[in-house]
Design a protein around this nucleic acid. Structure first.
Lengths: 366, 366
DNA sequence: TACTTTTGTGTGTACGTCCACAAAGGTGTG
DNA sequence: CACACCTTTGTGGACGTACACACAAAAGTA
């Protein structure tokens, strides 16, 4: 530690390389018009010292107004996506020194055609950068092809679309998530227990692919422990309470040894509410995301565990990465997996506010 | 969202108030020499708009070199304190635009006199800001009185000393931590289990007060559930393996129903190593902090849960808060409790690198 | 050889903030 | 009324970065 490792400026590099600041600038920004000799001299110095320009200083000097476009499934009714958008807002706020404009487009994740028209609006908006919450693979590939052609950087939140070249993506490892849920539910129930895997009839808040990955991880745990036959599946309705009450009552009558229940989406409170109504207690229940309904159910003592995947941080980091790239250049880490937070009644206070906790140096790796 | 809420500059405020930028600057920095009329006009505008200066821009303009002094227990042999110091380094790195100097002083947390002489060195260093990892209450009160007199801001990491006026403190809620550990160990063992509470003979890595608080929270859980008599205590040695092997073998012979073990410090791997040597398996074990020993024990399958308290984030935020205050002024939140992260083999990858995850907007509240 | 074009280089200005200094205004005294 | 003295105010430079522009040197053309 001790004294500050002498901050090096463009001027310093220029001096060391025996050229002017303008030449160093041209090398840094790849603006050409530099003789091979000068280029070599500057690059040698750049390799020796580690120069990192400050984004805030760069951004006040930059002339351009940056337009960033967000395109995700509708946030209406999905706290998960709402939280991702919260992260967008916080990043825009954090980087308010930069002359930023933003536009938000959301689409119906069950309607391919709606997604297609929404994606076309994204292109019409002539963005400088795009954050994508993808659902339809082929449509997204088509969108990103155009973005690639026009050299518009983009980043994903929630999940990655293979076969595309994003600046970065931010998501949780969904199979690990499923595996973790299985482990937790198993660990907190007696050895001879059986288990329920509840699935919403129509996939709720997130892309179907994520739910599938979670299920793969979930079942992997049980198969590894030769408990595959202890898991019983049941579909429930995201809306029809009467249906759920009946279905769950029948289910638990048929499977009296079921002591733990997993919902591989954020809809866990629907199950616990139903269990409460039909008077079934002491079923350990676990699902995803500290949504307000889930937080309430947990404080109520009906939900035992939640697994959080930091949606807000995903949104924040996606924006930050794109901005840093546009303003300072440089290439960040492409794959970024979020921590899977295990949330119980005892530590929920720290997670329910969805606080974006500083990427600072650790994560970004610019 | 849409367009950027027009960034307001000092010049804008000056125009609105009908004065020059210099006057606004004097008001902002409380440098006096402003007529009552001008003061009122500027303050009215400042109340209307929300002006937030950028720390990076301020810091390049500021003339002063800032000296920040860190004083904590020795980091030798304590990964917890090492991680806090990691956070210091990352903050210094993040704010390398600022002309910073730092000095580190560490003291023997078992030696009051050593602490006293170390504290006096802190004052001799004439710091602009101090980060304190406190152990001895009275000594710290004395130190901070001098700091208060000289208007030197300070912040605590790890714990707070009552009766002092820090800029802020960053710590985990230790009683919640103990309570959480109790809950986890209870939830993952059969209903008729008994429990072991292992304590290092000489408190290990952190202040004794923290360990006491954890024990209070731990016992509170068991008393609330009328299980106070199910907890058996045993002391172990941080160093003497042979002693531990003998003591643990005797203990488990005497208490065959003990199925869960808690260590309310980061020394859990000492217990699991000993259990491994004497051939006792299937005791659920839980302790604090993903130190490298604990991570190894967890990957090995011998430690079941760890509770993390983000030491690195504590260090990072303490420095950030002080710097923001010195450079931009403004008053941050004083009380800042870290999340208690529940760590298992399945999610340890995300926590073991002790990544500082961006405070950004959420936490700081400047 | 004179002239244009191309290529490479340095200089100057702007960004928002802080702060030193100079200018302007006001008050009181000889 | 002139002068010094104090209070208040405005102006201009500096920080580090980006970029436009002007200029110099080299190369090409007539």
């Amino acid at each position: 530690m001790a004294k500050n490792p002498q901050k090096i400026r463009i001027k310093d590099i220029a001096e060391m390389a025996g050229v002017s600041a303008g030449t160093v600038d041209r090398v840094l920004h790849g603006r050409g018009k530099v003789s091979p000799a000068a280029l070599k001299a500057v690059e040698e110095v750049l390799n020796r010292v580690n120069y990192n320009p400050n984004i805030y200083l760069s951004s006040i000097s930059i002339r351009k107004r940056i337009k960033i476009v967000f395109v995700t499934p509708h946030t209406q009714g999905s706290q998960y996506w709402q939280q991702i958008h919260e992260g967008f807002s916080k990043a825009l706020n954090e980087y308010s020194v930069v002359d930023l404009t933003s536009e938000v487009y959301t689409y119906d994740q069950y309607d391919l055609y709606n997604c297609r028209t929404t994606y076309s609006k994204v292109l019409e908006a002539k963005p400088d950068a795009v954050v994508i919450g993808p659902t339809f693979k082929d449509e997204t590939i088509r969108l990103t092809q155009t973005l690639d052609e026009e050299h518009i950087p983009y980043a994903y939140v929630d999940s990655m679309v293979e076969g595309t070249n994003p600046m970065a993506f931010y998501s949780a490892k969904q199979d690990s998530c499923g595996y973790l849920i299985a482990k937790l539910i198993r660990q907190t129930t007696p050895a001879d227990s059986e288990y329920a895997l509840f699935q919403a009839m129509r996939v709720g808040d997130e892309s179907a692919n994520n739910t599938i990955q979670r299920k793969i991880g979930f079942m992997e745990f049980f198969h590894q422990n030769r408990l595959g036959d202890k898991v019983h599946r049941l579909n429930f309705s995201p809306l029809d309470k009467a249906y759920n009450d009946k279905a769950l009552a029948d289910f638990f009558a048929a499977h009296p040894n079921v002591k733990g229940a997993a919902v591989l989406s954020s809809r866990g409170s629907i199950i616990t509410d139903s269990l409460k109504r039909i008077g079934i207690n002491h079923i350990k229940t676990i699902c995803l995301d500290p949504t307000s309904d889930n937080v309430a159910a947990m404080m109520d003592g009906h939900l035992d565990f939640l697994v959080g995947q930091r949606p807000e941080l995903q949104g924040f980091l996606a924006v930050e990465t794109l901005l840093k790239n546009i303003i300072c250049g440089g290439h960040p880490a492409v794959e970024n997996y979020m921590p899977l937070d295990i949330i119980t009644r005892e530590n929920i206070d720290f997670y329910k506010e969805y606080v974006v906790q500083n990427s600072a140096v650790g994560g970004g790796g610019m």
